[in-house]
Lab assay of single mutants.
Amino acid sequence: ETQAGIKEEIRRQEFLLNSLHRDLQGGIKDLSKEERLWEVQRILTALKRKLR
């Protein structure tokens, strides 16, 4: 995994995270989306740690 590859994956995950946040802010309670949001946040945290 290169730095560029990790950064690209971070961009993808952040896009997905923002999309999930928008969907959930629409007021629709969706447990699967909430679980996915937490999963994406965990992935992002792990990726950012790899960059250090």
Rank of each mutant, 00 (worst) to 15 (best):
E1R: 08
E1D: 12
E1A: 10
E1K: 09
E1H: 10
E1I: 10
E1L: 11
E1Y: 07
E1V: 09
E1P: 05
T2V: 09
T2N: 07
T2S: 09
T2C: 15
T2M: 09
T2A: 12
T2D: 10
T2G: 06
Q3K: 10
Q3N: 07
Q3W: 08
Q3M: 14
Q3P: 05
A4I: 08
A4N: 07
A4F: 07
A4T: 06
A4W: 10
G5V: 11
G5T: 12
G5F: 14
G5D: 12
G5N: 10
I6Q: 01
I6F: 02
I6A: 01
K7M: 14
K7I: 14
K7S: 06
K7T: 05
K7Q: 12
E8W: 03
E8K: 08
E9M: 10
E9I: 04
E9A: 11
E9Y: 05
E9C: 14
E9S: 04
E9K: 05
E9R: 07
I10F: 01
I10N: 01
I10H: 01
I10A: 01
I10G: 01
I10S: 01
R11T: 05
R11L: 07
R11W: 05
R11Q: 06
R11F: 04
R12A: 05
R12I: 08
R12L: 13
R12S: 03
R12N: 06
R12M: 06
Q13I: 15
Q13Y: 15
Q13R: 02
Q13W: 15
Q13E: 04
Q13G: 03
Q13D: 03
E14W: 08
E14F: 04
E14S: 03
E14M: 09
E14C: 15
E14R: 05
F15C: 15
F15T: 14
F15H: 15
L16W: 04
L16E: 07
L16Q: 02
L16S: 00
L16P: 02
L16M: 03
L16I: 13
L16T: 02
L17Y: 11
L17K: 04
L17V: 09
L17E: 08
L17R: 06
L17Q: 04
N18H: 13
N18T: 08
N18A: 14
N18I: 13
N18S: 09
S19Y: 06
S19L: 13
S19R: 07
S19A: 13
S19V: 10
S19H: 05
L20P: 00
L20D: 01
L20G: 00
L20T: 01
L20H: 01
L20V: 01
L20Y: 02
L20Q: 00
L20K: 00
H21M: 15
H21L: 15
H21W: 15
H21K: 15
H21N: 09
H21Q: 14
H21E: 11
H21I: 15
R22Q: 11
R22I: 09
R22E: 10
R22W: 05
D23P: 02
D23T: 05
D23N: 04
D23W: 09
D23M: 11
D23G: 04
D23I: 07
D23R: 03
D23H: 05
L24M: 08
L24G: 02
L24Y: 06
L24P: 02
L24W: 03
L24F: 04
L24H: 03
L24C: 05
L24E: 02
L24S: 03
Q25T: 09
Q25D: 08
Q25F: 05
Q25I: 08
G26M: 09
G26Q: 10
G26K: 11
G26D: 10
G26I: 07
G26A: 11
G27Y: 04
G27T: 08
G27V: 06
G27P: 09
I28R: 07
I28S: 08
I28C: 12
I28T: 08
I28D: 11
I28F: 07
I28W: 04
K29G: 08
K29E: 06
K29I: 11
K29L: 10
K29W: 15
K29Q: 10
K29H: 11
K29S: 09
D30E: 04
D30N: 04
D30G: 03
D30A: 02
D30S: 04
L31F: 09
L31P: 14
L31N: 11
S32M: 12
S32D: 12
S32R: 12
S32A: 14
S32V: 13
S32I: 12
S32F: 10
S32N: 10
S32L: 13
S32K: 12
S32Q: 14
K33F: 10
K33A: 08
K33I: 15
K33V: 13
K33P: 02
K33S: 05
E34N: 05
E34T: 10
E34K: 11
E34H: 08
E34W: 15
E34Y: 15
E34P: 02
E35P: 02
E35I: 09
E35S: 07
E35C: 14
E35H: 10
E35N: 09
E35F: 08
R36W: 06
R36S: 07
R36Q: 13
R36N: 03
R36E: 11
R36V: 10
R36L: 14
R36M: 13
L37T: 02
L37G: 01
L37A: 05
L37V: 06
L37E: 02
L37D: 01
L37Y: 15
W38E: 11
W38S: 12
W38Y: 10
W38I: 14
W38C: 15
W38F: 11
W38N: 13
W38K: 14
E39W: 04
E39N: 03
E39G: 02
E39M: 05
E39Y: 03
E39L: 04
E39V: 05
E39R: 03
V40K: 01
V40W: 02
V40Y: 03
V40D: 00
V40I: 13
V40E: 02
Q41L: 15
Q41F: 11
Q41E: 13
Q41I: 15
R42I: 06
R42A: 10
R42P: 00
R42Q: 12
I43T: 09
I43K: 06
I43M: 06
I43F: 08
I43S: 05
I43V: 07
I43Y: 10
I43P: 00
L44E: 00
L44A: 00
L44T: 01
L44C: 02
L44G: 00
T45G: 08
T45F: 06
T45A: 14
T45H: 12
T45V: 13
T45M: 09
A46Q: 11
A46S: 06
A46W: 09
A46D: 14
A46T: 05
L47F: 01
L47P: 00
L47Y: 00
L47E: 00
L47K: 00
L47W: 00
L47N: 01
K48F: 08
K48Q: 06
K48Y: 15
K48V: 05
K48N: 06
K48T: 03
K48L: 10
R49I: 13
R49M: 09
R49A: 14
R49S: 13
R49P: 00
R49D: 14
K50F: 05
K50W: 04
K50S: 08
K50V: 06
K50Q: 13
L51S: 01
L51Q: 02
L51F: 04
L51I: 04
L51H: 01
L51E: 01
L51T: 01
R52S: 10
R52T: 10
R52I: 13
R52M: 10
R52N: 09
R52A: 13
R52G: 08
R52L: 14
R52Q: 11
R52K: 11
